[in-house]
Amino acid sequence: MLQDLFGKVKKRAAVEGKKKTSDMDVPQNLLFQCPKCRAVMLMDEFEENGKVCRKCGHHARLTAWERVRLTADPGSFRELDGSLMACDPIGFEDYPRKLENTRRATGLLDAVVTGICSIQGSPCVIGVMDSRFMMASMGSAAGERITRAFETALEKGLPIVFFTASGGARMQEGMLSLMQMAKTAGAAKRHSDAGLLYVTVLTDPTTGGVTASFASLGDIILAEPGALIGFAGRRVIEGTIKQKLPEDFQSAEFLRSHGFVDEIVSRGELRHALGHLLALHRGGERR
């Protein structure tokens, strides 16, 4: 069902990963070429700008730890459930090897990093999905980390901020993966019932079962510019409704114009915006 959606995401990532111009090879560790406008800039300059193209504003993907460093107050982040990782619950062929290879390549045990931190002086629980880990698919361990993050926020009376980026459910875990949708949504509901704030930041790409569960349940839903956000792929939807979809369908901008996203916030302004929202929620002044 998501074949065409994943193809679009894969194509975008491949262009960004190769980092080469049409007429010359670009040293991977020295220069970055924007996959959108094709502008070339120094890698150091690109990273100092939060991995945002200075020419066209294209937002490249961040790792979980890059996101934490850009968002949390320095020295305030304390990781939760850092040792929790997936197993092979249904004996899916080659899954353990794929998990091990991904862990070595990313330095992560699973697709989600959660913790307690402060953002511009306001304490909160934060969660970040990392698309490098099997496209941040939501298996049982990722769902458990997300659920425990909500439970910790509920226990401590804290707001929670979640950065989503996912291809959806992890097929290698079968029904156990699909169960995480209800599990995480239930945890979000209990947090909401206590009158606590939940802010979702949808980043590129947020798709499938993650969009259909906790990612869509924020009291305030923000998104980064140009993020791909959706559930099923364009071809499946067009085949179902027998209509041609707009070109910008499933973009953050399209969803903002139709009321699904509350606001699109550029990466350079995101920490300030989150700090302001958290300060308003606790009734105090942002420090």
Rank of each mutant, 00 (worst) to 15 (best):
G91I: 02
Q180Y: 04
K189V: 13
T240D: 02
L202K: 01
I221M: 09
R234Y: 08
R235E: 14
L70R: 14
P123S: 15
L278G: 07
C87P: 00
G157T: 11
Q243Y: 10
V210R: 01
L158Q: 02
S257V: 00
L197C: 04
G157I: 08
L228Y: 11
R103G: 05
S213N: 05
S137Q: 14
E45D: 15
I90M: 03
P205C: 10
A279G: 11
M41N: 03
I221L: 08
G284I: 12
E253A: 12
E238K: 09
A187L: 04
K55C: 01
A105R: 15
Q172R: 14
R282P: 00
S177M: 01
K51H: 13
E151P: 00
C124D: 00
T102W: 01
E100Y: 03
A153V: 04
G139H: 10
Y95K: 07
I119R: 14
P246C: 08
M171Q: 10
L31V: 07
R78I: 13
E285Q: 12
A142K: 08
G268N: 11
A111G: 15
G259F: 06
L70I: 04
G218Y: 07
L178N: 10
L278F: 09
G283S: 10
M134E: 05
E151M: 12
R287I: 06
A279T: 06
G259T: 08
M1V: 08
M175F: 03
S122C: 13
F46V: 11
C34S: 09
K20E: 13
E151D: 01
E151G: 02
G209W: 05
H258A: 03
C34W: 03
I119D: 04
M43G: 00
C56N: 11
V15W: 07
T63C: 02
V199H: 09
K20Q: 10
K10Q: 11
S257I: 00
N49P: 07
V161Q: 04
K183T: 02
L197W: 13
D262I: 05
F231M: 12
L5T: 07
G91W: 07
L278C: 06
L80H: 13
A13K: 15
P89N: 06
E79A: 15
G75Y: 05
L158G: 04
R103N: 05
A223T: 06
K11P: 00
A188V: 15
S177Y: 02
V125R: 09
G275N: 09
R97M: 07
M24G: 00
H191I: 04
K18S: 08
D193H: 13
V9N: 13
F32L: 05
F162H: 11
H272A: 14
K183W: 05
G57W: 01
L84F: 14
I146H: 05
R54Q: 15
F163E: 07
S140D: 09
G91A: 05
G209L: 03
E247I: 11
M138Q: 15
G226Q: 09
H59G: 04
D23K: 00
L245C: 09
V9S: 13
T203R: 06
N29L: 13
C117I: 03
P159C: 14
S76L: 09
A182K: 12
R234N: 05
E16P: 00
R287P: 14
P27F: 03
P225T: 11
I221E: 04
